[in-house]
Amino acid sequence: MSKIHVSAVVNGDPVDFLADPRESLLDCLRDQLGLTGSKEGCGTGDCGACSVTVDGVLVCSCLVLGVEAEGKAIGTVEGISQGSTLHPLQRKFIEHAALQCGFCTPGILVAAKALLDQNASPTETEVRYWLAGNLCRCTGYDKIVRAVMDAASEMREAV
């Protein structure tokens, strides 16, 4: 099995890695690049814990091959904050107690940020449907939805 050299940009940083064509982008992020913030909860695109953006598009990184990342810009949970300044979503998740075990949190933050990047004023229903592919077993989603709505509200006021 020959490996393929892949060059990409992850969270703004240029990276190079060797990928077996069978490895998912999630495998490569975690095992090759040491970016373990993205999680594997299912490996079948059903839980969203591995959510990342590829050229700005929200995807499950378990359903993308590592070799497909060639030339792409990847965004992961590790790139959401600006240095030590948290993104409003990250702050609101902590303030609203929108995480318990925290395992689904990276994927939900990446997904919620993708939502707010394209819709500054989502309704509760829009938030719930957008995040339907991000399973959380601890919170019952209540505080997650509130945190996303509150972050959106704060970001609107800041503009």
């Binding site: 970016l35 373990t36 993205s38 998740f93 303030e95 995480l99 925290g102």
Partner: peptide, 23 residues
């Protein structure tokens, strides 16, 4: 009261280390 949880920052930044995150 409802202070921020101490492990919150690690968990919203992807730093928190779970079972599969150890090498």
């Amino acid at each position: 009261t409802r202070p921020n949880r101490p492990d919150g920052l690690d968990k919203v930044t992807g730093r928190a280390r779970y079972g599969a995150d150890m090498t």
